[in-house]
Design a protein around this nucleic acid. Structure first.
Lengths: 333, 333
DNA sequence: GCCGAAATTGGAAGCGCTTACAGAACCTTA
DNA sequence: TAAGGTTCTGTAAGCGCTTCCAATTTCGGC
């Protein structure tokens, strides 16, 4: 066992060909005779040769890696099932290629700086960006970098060129229509942050459904997607609209908060007030009562983002995608 | 704006020095005069130069990246808060360096192959391995690769050279001692998979506490860490030991299952039976009643693994770490 | 104001690969 | 069988950087 790793030269020598030929075999480029190819492949096997990615990318034009970047202000945000699931989906597709997956959590300035260096120095073949801040300077940088960039979700200020998003508006609308079909008439909503596209879209879905049914859309409290935010909003709602008979909550976390407020006030769910959440995080199965909610295809989001990025890298021009949601009926509505 | 990225040569020319000097400045190596350093730094600024990582690692000895690998058989496993939190911790430390973080989910053969290529071709400066299978061939490969490797958790068959683990045994023991301090006498346990170190360690902690207190340690049902496994085990326990007054459950997921069985049998928690879980996943706050559980410092696990790896890369010899757990008291005990 | 040692610098040789380019080998056709 | 294509193959020039070495400069002490 030599200590020095095996290189193309070793393979070339062993196979009795030139390094050019070895390289062609590795990249299965044309213009290699059957005989030469066999010899090289045997040599690779016998020597246990593994190409040096670094050298490949320095010499060639592809970097050999894609990055998944999460840009937000909340350092704890990644500790969230949502991202874990996105990563799973991304990985499933990346795994089929020989690309490497690089993760960048751009919650801090350091993280952001790192990401912008990647853009500037084109240190990857492409980037998937989950930009959670509105007006994220990174989005602009990403677009102008010339690197293939796929966005997860949209933002209020700017529709990215290529993105994959869930049908937040449609999902919300479906949820509310379901409540209506249950005979509920005084339907409130707890919205998510209204400075984010997702928050606005779900609110819009609510209004759309309520207004189309000729119902009152004024029972609104604004939340921030967190559990405590949900508690506050539910309390507020109950105080202002004691007559409400259903609530569409723009996230499961907020819904969990809402449920506990409802319970502590002695309000029966779903008999007195029906509750529907959004996201279908695991927790939704364990609330009391189990939460009826809108499921987002999160791993599909990851998968489709990655597929889209790969096509972009290949020079294709994919079209952005809106993934359908689905209502998961449990006990709360 | 030229299209060609700025290189050392450009900087050297602009600063009126040689590329050797530029390189020294970049890597802040000694033997550079104040004057030269200033000139180079100014040039870097003015030109917006960003070193090409690929070239750096090809020329130098460091790769510039570390990998976080999760080796398991369950493709869905990563979609688990545990990993998301580990990643958060890892990222926090990696972010302080100029290393890149590469993620490898080695659940499939492809993933595993990828990981072993990394080992063989030393395509990273080091790897953090969360090997969840016992007897994972990857562990052996990792050790023999000569690359710095830090393990998260231990395995039954083999104590890794460098690892970070939670104090599973001590945490379990503390949980059971707490139940004892509550006056419970007939304490059962639902164990985790007994072919994993973590499962065995928690079981050992249970026995240690129970036996030391002179109580009976025979009320045991084996689970598999899943919710349904917890349900089955709880049912079994209730049938075999109708007199039990407490259960230490080796994971929160199983505890959730146990709680629902308890509820359906009309057993009051905690008055009839006290329940303590392990892990403190988010769900633990939302069960009914809220679950008393042992918290693992998961992000600390990620952080410490990374610190350990960095030291290893620097040529130090760190010592393995066992991180303390803490009991989180909620309503179930 | 001179000497040797130490600090600084430039230049060049790679790192392991890809990719023209040009030459060699092999087929076609007439 | 020779001309004119094709298809292979080897060679060499980089990719952008680090680092070694030798050359140059600087500097303290006499």
């Amino acid at each position: 066992m030599s200590n020095r790793p095996v290189t193309v030269d070793d393979v070339a020598k062993h196979a009795g060909v030139s390094i050019g030929t070895v390289s062609r075999v590795i990249n299965n480029a044309p213009h290699v005779s059957r005989k030469a190819r066999d010899a090289v492949e045997r040599a690779i096997d016998e020597l246990g040769y593994v190409p040096n990615r670094t050298a490949q990318s320095l010499a060639g034009q592809r970097r050999g890696s894609v990055v998944l970047a999460i840009s937000s202000d909340d350092p704890g945000l990644f500790a969230n099932l949502f991202f874990a699931q996105v990563v799973t989906g991304v990985n499933a597709v990346v795994e089929e290629t020989d690309l490497e997956l690089q993760l960048v959590l751009a919650a801090s300035d350091k993280g952001r700086a790192r990401l912008s260096r990647i853009f500037k120095s084109r240190a990857a073949d492409g980037v998937m960006l989950l930009a959670l801040k509105e007006n994220d300077p990174l989005s602009a940088l990403a677009e102008s970098s010339g690197l293939p960039v796929v966005h997860g979700g949209r933002s209020l200020d700017h529709e990215p060129r290529f993105y994959v998003d869930a049908d937040n508006r449609g999902g919300a609308r479906e949820a509310v229509e379901y409540l209506i079909s249950l005979g509920r008439k005084r339907i409130a909503t707890i919205t998510g942050a209204q400075d984010q596209h997702v928050g606005v879209a779900r609110y819009l879905g609510y209004r759309e459904a309520v207004v189309l049914a000729g119902l009152d859309d004024s029972r609104v409290a604004h939340g921030d997607f967190t559990e405590t935010g949900g508690e506050a909003a539910m309390t507020d709602l109950l105080d202002r609209f004691p007559d409400l008979d259903a609530v569409f909550v723009a996230s499961d976390a907020m819904a969990a908060g809402a449920l506990s407020v409802l319970a502590s006030r002695g309000v029966q769910v779903p008999s007195d007030v029906a509750v529907v959440g959004f996201n279908d995080i695991v927790t939704a199965q364990h609330t009391t009562p189990a939460l009826t909610t809108v499921r987002q295809p999160i791993d599909a989001l990851g998968r489709e983002m990655t597929r889209m990025l790969l096509r972009l890298i290949d020079g294709d021009t994919p079209t952005s995608l809106i993934l359908p949601t689905s209502l998961v009926r449990r006990e709360s509505a």
